[in-house]
Design a protein around this nucleic acid. Structure first.
Lengths: 349, 349
DNA sequence: GTGAAAGCGCTAACAT
DNA sequence: ATGTTAGCGCTTTCAC
């Protein structure tokens, strides 16, 4: 199969129509009789015709646009990474005449997501890329996208019972919970592990649920007698956080194991610093600058990461490929590797 | 800076010549007077002209070729991964009208490298990609490439005092040795570590030297009283290997720490299996199928890996970019992340 | 040495 | 609804 030498003209001849008509069905922009359309499609099929992307790009003028629908963020937060990845992708597809636009919502506020998604529909972009932080609402939105024939791609999280997405890229959630548990308890014998603290953020539709399940599965299997204590903190209230943590350490003076399933382990900076001197094993997620800093200080032992930027850039590229040549990704569910970061290999990541 | 609207015609006008002449200097294919050439170059400069890749690709017919000069290999070996990566890259640049060719040599035989490199020069490709397994010979070869104005890219290893390569991509060698040491001794107190076995392959110009240095540095600093024993094995002689290993374990019945700095930890499969039951910490490099299998069996604890395929594919792409638009990579030395693989996160890698 | 001109394969505006 | 045609920006003969 070499890059086929058959052109739109060969197709036109074979179908007994003109270039123009072929082009029309190629981009189904109407104005073609069902009869010719069928003939053309058949010719394309039989000749195994693949349009020349370069000729197409050279000749066409109208840009396509992809909308990234994502949570708003402040500096140093997880979603900033995702954003940067999108920007990288944007740079790469710019020369393909594809523009990337953003629409933000409040990740703690369902209605803000809904109204943002409304705006997406109005804008009628060529494609959309988004995480599925709110399962239900996202599912509804996805259905409307499908009706509008707008392809969409999930990053980070997807709607579990959706089957119409163009692609997904993210970490295998449950497995990452297991890895987390394994790293937390690595080299420990069964009775070393009596008490584990899981620090959580109270919110609607917790996106880390599956990760937690994987974690618990591993613990139950390997350390059945370990007790797991949940500590709920408010990301917007450091004082509350520190108080909760202090309370926990008071109650469990020998506490040694601690995890957080979201990217916010840095919220525990003060609490962990205050605990310095005690032997602790702390595992968190994502290579945010503040998290890396804690690892440098020895307050966090391991971070589980996933090359977030590269992921979202890849999402953009995949969507761009689809927009330009209708090429769907070979694998739809892309599970990325679960990277283990320690003090020793955190550079160059 | 939008994708400039200035074309080759603008340049031609400004320089007071024709499109043809501009094109000639653009690809310095001669037949142009020094005077016009200069005028054109100035015009290009002033107008900040960037050729349109798509138009170029569409109009040009002659394919370019990249030669990968690399060690021959058998199934499951490290260099097979590198090869597969090149093939992936080949697939990606195929539509850019770029062909990838291979030239193999025996990694244990300097002269075979030299004669292979001779053939590269004869073939006069658009670019070459290679590791620098033989420092000196590769350096000489690199100089001849430069004289012939053939760009070259290093993968895996580079010539330390070469300064003319287009790019390099590989793991920071010394650091990887340190990480290796840290993983080997993780969670150990100073007097846990009395004896460490380093299994090596005797060969000319050992490519793992720097890795070993990093390893030793870490050990000396953190476990000054640890004794390091070198065991030399012959990769082509399993019996010799097993005998050497048995001898070692006999002499050091309590041996617990073992590493290998190349990708061949799988050569120790039998020896490690025979040792089963003893408490061992074994660290190796690279995610070869056979190595992964050992990890699955619990005979190897950690593998340090580097996404080899992706790396070599990237090398191809970078070279292709250069060939097509003379675009040099922003960073020339690309140090990849040192990935840590354990039984728990080895899937999806 | 240099310019003119005919494409490369496709898009899109304009006829019909 | 369909065909025709003029480009898109560059490469590559072929004259001169």
């Amino acid at each position: 199969m070499e890059s086929s030498k058959i052109t739109i003209i060969d197709v036109a001849k074979k179908a007994g129509v003109s270039k123009g008509t072929v082009d029309r069905v190629l981009h189904n922009r109407g104005e073609v009789s069902a009869k010719s359309a069928e003939k053309v499609r058949k010719a394309i099929e039989e000749l195994n015709f693949v349009p020349n992307v370069y000729a197409s790009l050279l000749a066409s003028k109208k840009p396509k646009t992809i909308i990234c629908l994502m949570p708003e963020f402040t500096e140093g937060e997880f979603w900033e990474k995702e954003y940067k990845g999108f920007m990288m992708g944007a740079a790469q597809v710019k020369e393909l005449n594809i523009n990337i636009e953003f629409l933000f919502y409040d990740q703690y506020d369902t209605t803000s997501f809904v109204s943002a998604s409304e705006k997406v529909l109005e804008a009628a972009p060529g494609g959309v890329i988004m995480p599925a932080l709110f399962q239900e609402e996202t599912h509804k939105f996805a259905q409307r996208l499908q009706e509008a024939e707008i392809p969409y791609f999930y990053v980070d999280t997807k709607v579990m019972d959706d089957d119409n997405f163009l692609g997904y890229i993210g970490m295998p959630r449950r497995d990452s919970g297991k890895v987390c548990a394994a790293l937390l308890t690595g080299n420990c014998s069964v009775d070393d592990v009596k008490e584990i603290a899981v620090v959580r953020i109270k919110r609607e539709g917790d996106p880390t649920k599956r990760r937690r399940i994987g974690f618990m599965d591993y613990i139950k299997e390997n350390f059945p007698q370990a007790k797991v204590t949940n500590i709920f903190i408010d990301p917007a209230d450091p004082a509350q956080t520190n108080a909760e943590m202090a309370k926990y350490f008071e109650k469990h003076p020998k506490a040694r194991f601690m995890v957080m399933f979201n990217s916010r382990i840095h919220l525990l900076a003060d609490a962990l610093a205050a605990r310095k001197g005690h032997r602790m094993t702390v595992v968190g997620f994502d290579d945010l600058p503040r998290n890396l800093e804690l690892m440098r200080q020895g307050l966090v032992n391991v971070l589980i990461a996933q090359h977030t930027e590269e992921q979202s850039a890849r999402a953009i590229q995949t969507m761009a490929d689809y927009l330009i040549s209708k090429k769907k990704p070979e694998v739809r569910d892309n599970y990325v590797h679960i990277d283990i970061l320690t003090r020793h290999n955190m550079e160059n990541y």
